[in-house]
Design a protein around this nucleic acid. Structure first.
Lengths: 153, 153
DNA sequence: ATTAATAATGATAATTATTATCAATTTCAC
DNA sequence: GTGAAATTGATAATAATTATCATTATTAAT
């Protein structure tokens, strides 16, 4: 069975005149099944279990490929390393709230931000590939913790 | 004369019980006068002209300080190194369009995105410190160039 | 099926930006 | 002035990613 992601991946390979390969197919198959955000360190050890000989460079290369093809989106979330996530087609993009205290990341969707984004792109005759909206601050739980600490002291 | 930025910097120093220092004052004075986005490499050579003995670590430390105090905002713009920009108070935040072809960065302001951002934060009881919205794609000029190339071939 | 051209691979060196360390110096409340 | 604490410059360390390169795999054309 050919999933949406797989189809998009194969299209990308074809239009760029790249060659398919066992290793890359394996990595792509694995990534297709991920949920949420992940780093290289999250997935590389699991890939080694499937194929002991996969080099980390190939994983990096494949991630780059999938980002370029629009299948993955990369975030930094204020950190040095990259986080990746699948972007299904025909699903509105979501954005992120990042707690700078506990590191928690929450997703939200906002139709009107999407709309405004497109309106501005049009105004600048800018052709959008992707976008990232990260809101940094303190989550509800961390605010409560801080409050209770203040009361105790 | 005490500028708005200087006042905010001194407040921050005071509330964190830090000490002032010649070096840091010098760096802060310099940064106050910057316009637009800059990296360490943009400003460090100029600082050396003012004081030959300033170490790059001190500049990094001071930048971090100013980001923490909300005077500077840091962006990655899809690159590894950090870009910084002054955030004046009482001025609505702006966002960025980034051309992945030529690297050009355009700023825009959108009141309704700001509004939606605040609405969502409220919904999640999230206390906003700052935000970054980066829209990646191809600018008008680069699109034209591509079109004309296609016609020629 | 063979070949020839090109792409992919793993290992690892290189890069690059930033942070950590630390002894010496500076600041500042008392 | 004194002493505790913060700051400093030099530089080592870190950490994530990319570049290099010899070898292997893939593919299109024969």
């Amino acid at each position: 069975m050919l999933t949406e992601f797989k189809r998009r991946y194969q299209d990308f390979i074809a239009t760029r005149k790249l060659k398919s390969s066992k290793r890359r197919d394996l990595i792509v198959d694995f990534i297709m099944q991920t949920k949420g955000h992940f780093t290289i360190d999250d997935i590389y050890p699991q890939m080694l279990k499937i194929d002991r000989s996969i080099g980390i460079a190939t994983v990096y290369r494949t991630l780059r490929l999938l980002v370029d093809s629009g299948i993955l989106r990369e975030h930094s979330f204020g950190e040095k390393r990259g986080y990746f996530e699948l972007l299904p087609l025909h699903t509105p993009l979501h954005d992120h709230l990042i707690c700078t205290d506990c590191g928690k990341i929450m997703e939200f969707q906002c139709q009107s931000i999407e709309q405004e984004k497109r309106r501005i792109a049009q105004q600048y005759q800018f052709s959008i590939r992707t976008h990232k909206l990260e809101i940094f601050g303190i989550c509800a739980q961390c605010q409560q913790q801080k409050n209770s600490l203040n009361i105790q002291t």
